[in-house]
Design a protein around this nucleic acid. Sequence first.
RNA 1: GGCGCUUUCAUCUAGGGGUCUAGGAUUCAUGCCUCUCACGCAUGGCACACGGGUUCGAAUCCCGUAGGCGCUACCA
Length: 505
Amino acid sequence: MTERKIRVRFAPSPTGALHIGGVRTALYNYLFARQHGGDMIFRIEDTDSNRFVPGAEEYIIESFKWLGIKFDEGVSFGGNYGPYRQSERREIYKQYVKQLLDNGKAYIAFDTPQELEEKRKGIPNFQYDASTRMLMNNSLTLGKEQTEALIAEGKQYVVRFLIEPNEEILVNDIIRGEVRVNSSVLDDKVLYKSADELPTYHLANIVDDHLMEVSHVIRGEEWLPSAPLHVLLYRAFGWEGTMPRFAHLPLLLKPDGNGKLSKRDGDRLGFPVFPLEWHDPKTGEISSGYRESGYLPEAVINFLALLGWNPGNNQELMTIDELIKLFDLSHCSKAGAKFDFEKGKWFNHEYILHKDNAELAEMFIPILKEHGIDAPKEKVTTVIGLMKDRVSFVKDLWETCKFFFVAPTAYDEKTKKKRWKECSGQQMLELADILETLDDFSLEHQEEVVMKWIADKGYGVGDIMNPFRLTLVGEGKGPHMFDISAVLGKEETIARIRRAVEVLK
RNA sequence: GGCGCUUUCAUCUAGGGGUCUAGGAUUCAUGCCUCUCACGCAUGGCACACGGGUUCGAAUCCCGUAGGCGCUACCA
């Protein structure tokens, strides 16, 4: 038992885009598996045929590919415990449902959803359990013969788990410790529906985790209330000895107000809640993604890892390998974490700072192309080296750097008022003449010559540089002047000065 | 309503009886740097939900209260 191989799983249902909270759950599973040399399984829980959304499964796979979270087995990854799509495991589940039925751990119920709805409306706090099941329409009240007759004539039914009342159930959670619940508060959960011949989540989950030899179930806190039910199911099957260990993660909450982080919050507050852009095939709605918004996957991973967990020291920037080394379920927080988008931006900024300029150039070139600019990679790389410390996203580079690629068409009024003096026009023309004489237009040489000219003339450095900036940039910002002029080149620099003097007078 | 989980700066969090006049990061403010804007650096502001215990001593342990969150489907 102690020798058991670590096996974890991430098991989404293909009902839409992968939520960022799900990404974090998958990440923690991944870190845990890697750290222990275990396996990470990708299972598709599509037992609700009504909620199936085409493309969702592919989307999820693509998301993890982008994020760099790798699975060892599962849908699209192969493995010896398949099939990994629950809709393809019907026959397996049927067998286990029968086992429960045969052992008297479950029973067949004919109550229709409408009938149950009526009950709930009529009786306060109605629950299908030990106190009410003998009043309902099921194999317990109908008897074997009549039950079989009803099934034979094609009546739809469900299989419910028979829960014995007044039993204390103990769930041992790695993050939360011992959680005790009395079985009387649990209802006789539906385990199987004859309508689509599929089990519900609870049954499928337990059967699959057992069959796939899952050792640890690391999932969101929303599952904690059903954990006792799962324990009971393991017990009913006689699998308690190999029951996985549970760890229920704190939830990701809305940045403002209260509640679980939802898709709407992203739309409302202007940040993505999905890893990739998602086109909803049903509504036609498009939701933004981290990838399309210019996030680096490493930054997303790092940010997410720290939402609900920390390494126990003050380290915040960690590579995936460091995360694998440091991750520890017992260091997970218990309370939900509000999703702080600003911090996410900061992480991305840090990762841009550390990323290779040429790689960033590869990402920026397509954006330049969108603006009709076809610049050589060397130039783009140089520009990025100069400018990347002032952006949080690659796409922000366009607004901050465009003056490197297009001459200003207008000059910022405020800057003009503050920096453009009466003599500036004349001085700029002098500067243009000086630059004209240079054969070597390198940053160093320009600086040497221009600074000497300024000193010789007794000009103020700022009185020259600020107007100079206005002529090249069109605004009062940007890196050091000779960095700019060196990138622009002699011809363009001088042309921009002359044009600006014309306009500004 | 019932059941469960949870509670340290605005936010993410460190902290597991004395080293806490509570540390880091983000955000915010100020200053330095400087040809501008950023970056960077420095400084500052901001928290132990409340009430009882236990103890020589509690952010840390116990009990209440309040708040927050989740679940309460033939959804996962």
